[in-house]
Amino acid sequence: MLRTGIRIPLFLLTAVALTACSAATADDAPPRSAATKGAPAKVTVVPPAAGRPVSVTASGGTLARVKVVDEDGTELTGRTGAGGSAWTSDRKAAPGASYTVEVVARGAGGGESTSRASFSTPAADRVNKLSLAPGKNTTVGVAQPLSIVFDRPVANKADVERQLKVTTSNGTEGSWGWLTDYSGKDRVDWRPKDYWKPGTRVTLEATLDGTDSGRAGGWFVRDYRTAFTVDTTARVIRVDLDRKKLSVVRNGRVVTTIPVSGGTPGGDKRSWRGTAVLMAKEGTIRMNSETVGLGDAYDKLVDSSMRLTWSGMYAHAAPWNAAYFGRANKSSGCIGMSDADASALFATVRPGDPFEITGADTKGVVAEGNGYGDWNLSWADWRAKSALR
């Protein structure tokens, strides 16, 4: 939709132009399409501010049909109340948009008249945007939350959350939860009560166009939609740092167990514990210890890299640590394994698979915003993070 910064006064196509702050009255309507019996209804269109619904009223009659469309031809649906004399749009008027209103009204005597009006809303001073995960039409593991990160702050969290509709193919129970992303930005995730059932289809409709973020956040000026599917295989990766082993559980059955080496106990090189969701399969990447606050401890190319947190915890090949696999935790915080085992695991997993990590000597539980740590909260605590609780 093209949004301009020019405010166009509300006017009736068949009447004189009115000021932008005035209501438009359609009593100078074009010739009626049906025989007139008595005086026609008097129609008033109230030009809304951005973020408010469009309203139309009729005095001396009722509204037979109201059609409101923007400059792209997208219709704002609505409903009639007050005995048929008032109509309100379901959606709010967006900032910087132009609308045309066509009204068919029925007078007290039964005759119909048609009138038209148009108006524009001022452009937004600030615009808020968002990014969605997972990507559209992707297939993910059973622990992948639906995650939205906002470009600008969201003060009106309840108003925004009301516009976010999640539909699943099997009626999955879930809830939105607001948190601070590792980047420092506002974020809201939709997490099921339990891991997804394999094969679940998920759709998000974010009808945010015309919604105000509040304060310095700005307006949303478009809607968003995404859909994804949960893998038909339920995979859970269990990492026992005390026993230095990793197990792949497929549909409830352990199919593979491999020796690993986790983060070195007793300091900053310890691993995180809790549930970390596989964020991405990054393959061969350059890892530099300075980027995670560990000085010049390492700088090397690492194969079969699987990202688990934003703070730099991966599962990956670590042939330089071969003497410790299954025997001791001697990594800089990641979960290391042999080239062959890492390659096989890399080929097996997909983003959204949960890594359930246990161990006595770790640096704490993965936080919600550090990757997808949503599962480290109880269901009651997660639901309490909804703005609509």
Rank of each mutant, 00 (worst) to 15 (best):
G38H: 12
S131H: 06
C334S: 06
L377I: 06
E368S: 05
W382R: 07
E112W: 05
A108I: 05
G369F: 03
G184I: 02
K92V: 14
R162Q: 15
V365D: 13
D159Y: 05
I335E: 11
L164A: 03
I8E: 15
G111N: 06
A315H: 10
I258Y: 14
G252A: 03
D361L: 07
D296A: 05
Q163P: 08
L132Q: 00
Y224K: 03
R52M: 09
L2G: 09
V202C: 07
V302K: 08
S311K: 11
G184Q: 14
E282P: 07
C21E: 14
S332N: 12
L246T: 04
T362C: 08
G262I: 05
G214V: 06
A93Q: 12
D361I: 03
V292A: 10
D181E: 15
V188I: 10
D223M: 02
R243V: 00
R52K: 13
A216G: 05
L12N: 14
K385D: 09
G81V: 05
E75C: 01
S304M: 06
G73T: 10
A387W: 08
V160E: 12
T36H: 12
W87G: 01
S331V: 00
R126L: 06
A82R: 14
I8H: 13
T257P: 14
V202H: 12
G312W: 10
T4E: 11
P198W: 03
